[in-house]
Structure formats: C-alpha cells, structure tokens
Design a protein around this nucleic acid. Structure first.
Length: 258
DNA sequence: AACGGCCCCAACCGCCACGAC
DNA sequence: AGTCGTGGCGGTTGGGGCCGT
C-alpha cells in the first residue's frame, strides 16, 4: 500500500532502481517474505537479504521492519511501570541514547522507547512549560514521578520490591564505585513513612542519583508549575500514570522541601 | 453523523562509524 | 590514504485512529 501525498525518494531524478523500490507501510506479503527468508538464512547483510527475499525494499527498510516489528521477541503493548521507571532513570543518565537504553528493556526497541519519551514524557515537560533537559523537569521526575512509580510497583506487587522484574535482564555491573543498584526514595504519597525500594538486579550502572545543589529553587518552580497546570501529569492516557494527577499530596511534598 | 484537533507510532531520513578493498 | 558499501543511531514526519464537540 503506497501512501499518497507522502514524498518519497530523492528530489533529484531517481534512478531506475530507485523508482522500483517500495516505500511506506509494509504489506502482509512483504512481511511473510522477510520472515521466511530470515528463518532460512538468518539476519544480516540487509541489502543482500532484501534482494534475496525478493523484496523491493532497501536493506535499511528491511532491517527496521524486522528489528522493530517482526522479530519474535519484540514486546508490544503498554510500557509497564517498571519499564517506565527504568527508562526515566536510564535517560537521566544517558540522555537520548535510545539503543543503549533499549538494551536494558528486553523486547523493547529503541524506536518504541524513543516514541514513548517523545509522546509521553516530552508532553509532560511541555505542560509544565519547561524543557526536558531543564533541572526543573529532571527534579520533578526524580522527586515525584519516580517515587510514584516505585509506589505503584510496590502496590502492584503486594509487598516491597526486593527482586527484579523477571522480564528485565541481568545487567552488567556498575562500573563506578557508586552502588546504585538499589534505588531508594522517600515520599509521602502512600503513608507518612513510605519508603520505596527497588532493586534492578544491578541494572542501574554507573551514574548518580544527585538530589543536591539548587534543589530549593527548583522545587519552588515546581510549585509554580503545579499552580499553572493543575491536574496535569497524566502520564499515561487511559490508566497507568493517569492515576498520578497532582493533588494535595504533591503540595505537601513540595512544601516539605522548602 | 460529521467534523476538527490531538496523539500515537511505523517508517523514513540524514549522518556517522567502521570495515573491506 | 581514499573510496565504497553497510549497519546503526537519533531525529523527524505524517497517516490513521481516537475523542470531544
């Protein structure tokens, strides 16, 4: 199925081969060709594979389709709270290194994580009138969203989280002297003495959970953000983070930091 | 039911790194 | 050393579905 109105190909006069190449959404027939060919010959050498499979697609297109969609171990559907927490943490450490982050979320592709970040997280930043790279936003993540995710994970598990998500892989050991395999947050969200623990089986490598300098100012900004954006932080439409709307607990939390 | 706006995500693009020649 | 082919990555686009009016 060709997509009308979408500009494909180079602006210059296309070559005969270029004109013959298909672009746009994949058909079932194309998917089957790719799956069958890889089942027999394996992955790799994507341009050769595309020709061998009889696909009028670029090798790049075949690779993308396979890795992001057809691969049997691709996990689809909602990102779990555990995965969300991991994404937030790893992004705070590595930035937009999507492929690197994806390594720690089995079955999730870099594309999916990237889309998640852009559609969900960046939307929240926009609603808070700040940049995702700003300290204000990062502090909001660390002090409010991540503890909430911890609480949700804890609540869902029915007890304190002492073990890793079985879906998550064993990760390489931390490379720095800072042991951050165990994240701990304090939050008034659940009870006055709530402390959320989360172990990622060594999944959180080197880096820091720096709750340090300049935090007072950031928190004041967060209060302003709340005033302007009451009811926001609906992180996951139709459930999930949607339960985490700003409320009195958030005010309490922010005020306690001043 | 029709319409418009918004959101999600599959797929594309450009760029870069790397290895082979 | 330079060129070419290939793979991988992050950024961007836009079709289509959803939802509110």
């Amino acid at each position: 199925m060709e997509v009308p109105g979408r500009v494909f190909g180079s602006a210059t006069q296309p070559s005969a081969e270029e004109m013959d190449l298909r672009r746009g959404p994949w058909t079932v027939e194309e998917d089957l060709k790719l799956i069958n060919y890889i089942a027999i010959h394996g992955e790799g050498r994507w341009n050769t594979l595309a020709r061998g499979a009889g696909l009028k697609r670029t090798g790049k297109s075949c690779r993308l389709r396979w890795l992001n969609y057809l691969r049997p171990d691709v996990r689809r559907g909602n990102i779990s709270p555990e995965e969300q927490l991991l994404i937030l943490e790893l992004h705070s450490r590595w930035g937009n290194r999507w492929s690197k982050i994806a390594q720690y979320l089995p079955g999730r592709t870099d594309n999916e994580i990237k889309n998640y970040w852009r559609t969900r997280v960046q939307k929240q930043a926009k609603q808070l009138n700040c940049d995702v790279d700003s300290k204000k936003f990062k502090d909001t993540m660390r002090y409010l969203w991540m503890p909430r995710l911890m609480e949700r994970i804890r609540a869902a598990s029915g007890s304190s989280l002492q073990g890793p998500d079985p879906q998550l892989p064993a990760c390489p050991p931390a490379s720095s002297s800072t042991d951050l395999t165990r994240m701990q947050f304090s939050s008034p969200v659940a009870t006055d003495s709530f402390v959320g623990d989360c172990c990622f089986s060594g999944c959180i490598p080197d880096g820091e959970l720096n709750f340090g300098d300049g935090i007072q100012e950031a928190r004041l900004e967060m209060v302003d953000g709340w005033c302007d954006n009451e009811g926001l932080l609906d992180f996951e439409h139709g459930g999930g983070w949607g339960q985490n709307s700003w409320g009195l607990e958030d005010i309490w939390f922010v005020e306690q930091q001043n």
